[in-house]
Amino acid sequence: MKEMTLYVDHAFREKIVSELGAERLLRCFQCSTCTVNCPISEFVDWNPRLVVEKCLLGLRDVLKEEGLWLCTSCQNCYEHCPQDVRFSEVILALRRLATEEIKAGRLKVGSTKPVFDECFLEMIAKYGRQYEAGLIRMFAKRSGLGFKLLLSFKGLGIRLLKKGKVALRPKKIKHIEEIRDIFRKFGGDRGEIGGYK
């Protein structure tokens, strides 16, 4: 067997741990309770325990994990962890770091989830509430999926339309300036997106 030496990248590990929500990372004792309880690991290649291990070793490759974008935020890992690591919060931190890399052009991911989340936030910044029809249109355009996306959700859309469950116009809240203010202060670079400065 070929031997391999692995150096812990302390700087990157520190970077993750200093993110809000990832403070408890070092408590992990690698018991796999999170993995056993994770509902998506049954269907996709995703092992929460291993992801924590990669973080602990400071492996930058951890940001390439496709599962980062498949996590459903079900809170099973948070709930069951004997060390209170709160892995679901760690995921949000990793997503933020990955998004930075994507924006800097250093990372490419297959998932459209980062784009979806951005569109979702932009809708809130614009109207103060979610506007699904507008969201889908924006997402179709920005993800590059275009008609393909609309086609794959055609059935769902028609069913909801038939039951009168789709809003055809956005509703803007009265004090939208308060929302814009929140985005400006806490939205990071998102505070400046789409002209909601």
């Binding site: 809000l20 929500g21 459903t72 935020s73 919060e89 949000l92 997503r95 933020r96 998004t99 979806f116 989340d117 979702f120 936030l121 809708m123 809130i124 103060g128 509430r129 979610q130 809240i173 009265k174 004090h175 308060e178 929302i179 929140i182 985005f183 806490f186 939205g187 990071g188 998102r190």
Partner: peptide
């Protein structure tokens, strides 16, 4: 009155 969206599960920035 005048409530806003909670952000669902799409807001990855805790302070926001």
């Amino acid at each position: 009155e005048d409530w806003n969206c909670c952000g669902a599960l799409e807001v990855g920035i805790p302070l926001l």
